[in-house]
Simulated assay, not measured.
Amino acid sequence: MTTRLFIDGAVGTTGLEIRARLQGRSEFDLIILDDAQRKDESARRDALHAADIAILCLPDEAAKEAVKLAKGSGTRMIDASSAHRVAEGWTYGFPELIGHEAIANAQFVSNPGCYPTGFLGLVAPLVRAGLLPADWPYTVNAVSGYSGGGNALIDRFEHDPAIAFRAYGLTLGHKHLPEMQTYAGLTHAPVFSPAVVPAHRGMVVDVPLPLAAMQATGGADDLRAALAAFYAGSAVVRVADDTPAEVLLRQGTAPGDGMALHVFGSADGTQARLVAVLDNLGKGASGAAIQNLNLMCGLPEETGLTLGVTPE
């Protein structure tokens, strides 16, 4: 059975990539609006009501408005914005954490943020297992390719080669923090230090752990083993069993929808670093939306995904 699908906001970075990935898939019949129609509220309402599933690739306020336009339609939704990630009635679209059946049966799914995907993928299973405390003031250091900032940031980086590093979110209170805290089950929101580097795509999320100070109940090997057990059998998330001397993001990194998790520990066992490597446009955005779409349509979650390829 073919699923009628509407991508509202198909001209942004995430929307364009989702549309390109789905155009060759016979399971979906894409509802496409021309340039004039996509800005017309009536045309968008008609498309939202005609679709079986709509994927919202819009700014937060526009995503909320799209939900209002679709009211009464019964259309299922995947929202790629941050508007509904901790909202009542929405299922958080991280199947490895929330459960595949929960996604499959949901009407409203909110796609996780790219940085939270790395942070939660590392921290949430370990807090659940009791290996890390829920009340610790965690810090998160992360870098992303500039494509995560949308068309304006893409244009800025591609026309100003002098930019080598861009730190932002310096007033704190980043919009990703509520989902990080909520789905990791933390008492305190982490201190989040995001940055952008001159690579189109790719992301590294680094969570330092002073194990001795936090009185953690396990060392690096225990943390790694717990993550490996949690993600055993996952087609998307891989836990590395080695400890490379470096983790790289390359400017020409190929697209990929997997996520690699690393655990590094000090020789004396007093410190560790949890590191996630992913494609900010893959598992961090478009790839996650397609994974969730597959589950909602009763398809194997990895259908149409590029797996086995993650940045170094």
Results as ranks from 00 to 15, higher is better:
residue 29 D to A: 13
residue 94 F to K: 09
residue 293 L to A: 06
residue 48 L to V: 07
residue 242 D to Y: 09
residue 267 A to M: 11
residue 258 G to K: 05
residue 34 D to N: 12
residue 217 T to P: 05
residue 167 A to W: 01
residue 305 L to R: 06
residue 262 H to C: 09
residue 165 F to E: 04
residue 210 P to H: 04
residue 307 L to M: 08
residue 192 F to N: 10
residue 91 T to R: 15
residue 207 V to A: 00
residue 112 P to R: 01
residue 13 T to E: 10
residue 208 P to G: 01
residue 47 A to Q: 14
residue 195 A to G: 12
residue 204 V to G: 03
residue 295 L to P: 08
residue 239 V to A: 06
residue 263 V to R: 00
residue 289 A to H: 08
residue 69 L to V: 11
residue 80 A to F: 02
residue 271 Q to N: 13
residue 110 S to K: 04
residue 247 V to Y: 00
residue 302 E to D: 15
residue 235 A to W: 04
residue 272 A to N: 01
residue 247 V to W: 00
residue 137 P to A: 02
residue 230 F to G: 02
residue 47 A to D: 10
residue 25 R to N: 12
residue 112 P to H: 05
residue 102 A to F: 13
residue 127 V to H: 06
residue 49 H to A: 06
residue 44 R to K: 14
residue 301 E to G: 03
residue 131 L to S: 08
residue 14 T to H: 06
residue 95 P to N: 07
residue 23 Q to V: 02
residue 21 R to V: 01
residue 173 G to K: 11
residue 196 V to W: 02
residue 300 P to T: 00
residue 189 A to W: 14
residue 13 T to D: 10
residue 138 Y to L: 01
residue 43 A to F: 14
residue 140 V to G: 13
residue 272 A to I: 00
residue 127 V to C: 12
residue 204 V to W: 01
residue 102 A to T: 05
residue 114 C to M: 13
residue 17 E to N: 13
residue 306 T to C: 09
residue 183 Y to T: 11
residue 297 C to D: 06
residue 133 P to S: 02
residue 8 D to S: 14
residue 235 A to S: 14
residue 39 K to V: 10
residue 75 T to Q: 15
residue 52 D to N: 13
residue 153 L to D: 01
residue 116 P to I: 11
residue 20 A to F: 04
residue 144 S to D: 13
residue 157 F to C: 12
residue 8 D to W: 10
residue 108 F to E: 02
residue 31 I to N: 09
residue 150 G to I: 00
residue 295 L to C: 08
residue 72 G to E: 04
residue 150 G to H: 02
residue 63 A to T: 08
residue 55 I to M: 15
residue 138 Y to P: 02
residue 242 D to A: 05
residue 205 V to K: 00
residue 103 I to V: 08
residue 162 A to T: 14
residue 223 L to Y: 01
residue 289 A to L: 12
residue 41 E to A: 15
residue 151 N to P: 10
residue 231 Y to H: 05
residue 104 A to K: 08
residue 280 N to K: 03
residue 194 P to G: 07
residue 300 P to C: 01
residue 40 D to Q: 11
residue 293 L to Y: 06
residue 282 G to M: 09
residue 13 T to H: 15
residue 105 N to L: 07
residue 34 D to Y: 01
residue 54 A to S: 15
residue 50 A to M: 06
residue 27 E to G: 09
residue 88 E to Y: 10
residue 277 V to I: 07
